[in-house]
Design a protein around this nucleic acid. Structure first.
Lengths: 193, 193, 193, 193
DNA sequence: AATGAATGAGAATTCATTCAT
DNA sequence: CATGAATGAATTCTCATTCAT
């Protein structure tokens, strides 16, 4: 039910998704939806809130894993996140959030505080550790966090927007590999290795 | 009229934007909209098509400017694009396209072929030139193009989605600066300078 | 169950009363209602039919009590009826009948024949006896019946409609007293006493 | 439109009246209703508020007409009101108000303050004048007002509830005549004429 | 007997579109 | 050219009714 709603919301956007279609996709009646959710808006919020739980859990988990150097930690974070997004349909949530933030500011704030800020914290720690250990160059950490996150975010956003239209087949393996290559090289001290 | 429509489509999405509101914002009557556009969908397409004309023009222009080395060309491209997006409301188009691609595949395709592929071509040329001249390391060019474009795309997408909700104040100057720093460092040969 | 239904039907009207609410008020499940009543309409009919039984019984009883003169009989009738209505929630039935007669003509007819006509018969007998004995003036008996019944009917109707909204606090004691005063004076021969 | 709505609301009650039916009866489309009224509830309020304007106007007019003695003033008031109610469909409003007061307390309050209190004021003045002139007996004026109003109210309520079901054909001429007869006799001093 | 989850027909409301002026 | 009143199909939401447990 939440899963059917997520898929359709991601695919078509909130307003363009009819409750009929969600009901059909979830194999229940329209009335049943209202048994569990007060309104379409409540369903939307539930989709987002339920959807980010795995991300939160994963974030907490990764936050504990401080073993290894900064380089490998950073790579680990990116790859984990990519796996999580790639394996489930939760990857659509960032795209959905981007599309509907204007119509649901409270949900956007909730998402920002519970997902984005946490995600940024992970990157911040990895960056700070790398800078402290000399692995990474000194740089504007706060800006760097956003710059670093952008390509992985874009990857999932793309996947749920233009890619399904046949626009740009994504070789995500190559994309991630190239991304990490450029990123690691970009963060590292010149001649440090 | 197109401008009013663009603003509202970007802010609320296609389906959630009422023709009434566009008419009011454009200071015309609802009937007048139908004098110039056959339907809401036609208006949407016109918004996109008119909106990308400046990008196309700019693209053509930049494509001519081959002077300078690859490093400066790449930086030039990024900054120009950022300026173009930053100064007008056209920056909302990528966000709009991401949101509505699923509902308007033909428009998405049109956008892809006329904007994205051209943009990619610019980056491709800069990359190839840099690799040829030895300024840049050898890398998977096709993947690199997407990786390189992602942070600047994300910048404008963010600006029209979560930022208006008070989520994440963007210091775009610092962002671009850090981005170019990491990128240039990441593309460059180790110890090459 | 019938009592809960009566209260809600009187308070909100038939259509605005949800079976859910009746079920909650009656402390049973919605399904249980269907165990005892075939449909909402059947429940409504049962409410009316059960509700008027006491009135019918009371009517029968009063019909036997011919002792005393016409004046006291008339007063007795009015006060009895007022007590019956005042002490239970059955007073809401006239208001309910007035509201829903248009939607349930058969029930209205049933009510008319079994309650109203009987009630009129009581008044008719009292009037006729009074006229015969010279206590009351000669008058159009059939019209007088309705005129006489109106104030007591209005009293209960008011009590279940506008009074609960804080409109018009009813001093029913004074009302009945004044009513009987005017009525008795009005029916009586001038200078007969 | 308001007239069609009034008729149907009176006939079926608020909840049982479908906007479709109002639209059909008013010979407009459902959408047109929403062009003039925000919601079904707003339409209901408009029906009541527009409906009582004539009553208010008539009330104001009558309030000026102090010529004649109390007896004739009282009779005049009753007959006028009866004419007003009888000639238009506005007579349904009291029945409607009684039925829906519980669901629209604000409207009920509005009605009470603007119609009922004014109507009571008219009767009060007539009563007081009659008592002062010795035409009427001394009595509890406030209660008497309600007692006096009840039969004429009941007359219109009846007309829009049970009468349409074939329950009790009303000879309103005789009813009013008998009512005024009993009332005048009841109010008058014994042996005063 | 009793429950309450599930249903779907039906009602209120919205909004793109039309057209007479 | 421009308008805005009118439309009705489409959509959200409600609630009487059913039925497996």
């Amino acid at each position: 039910m939440l899963s059917a709603a997520l898929d359709l919301f991601v695919e078509r956007g909130y307003a363009a998704t009819k409750l009929d279609d969600i009901a059909i996709k979830a194999r229940v009646s329209k009335g049943t939806l209202y048994l569990y959710f007060d309104s379409k808006e409540a369903l939307f919020k539930a989709v987002i809130e339920q959807g980010i739980l795995p991300m939160l859990a994963e974030g907490e988990l990764l936050l504990q894993q401080h073993q290894g150097d900064a380089r490998s930690l950073m790579q680990e974070l990116m790859l984990r996140w990519w796996q999580l997004m790639g394996e489930t349909h939760l990857g659509g949530i960032p795209k959905l959030m981007i599309s509907e933030a204007g119509n649901f500011p409270e949900v956007a704030t909730y998402y920002y505080e519970n997902v984005i800020l946490r995600g940024r914290e992970l990157i911040r720690q990895a960056l700070n550790r790398g800078v402290a250990s000399g692995e990474f160059r000194a740089l504007n950490v706060e800006s760097a966090i956003d710059v670093i996150l952008a390509p992985v975010l874009m990857l999932v956003v793309w996947r749920y927007s233009l890619t399904p239209c046949g626009c740009g087949t994504q070789d995500t393996q190559a994309y991630m590999s190239t991304y990490l290559d450029i990123l690691m090289n970009g963060l590292t001290q010149k001649g440090s290795e």
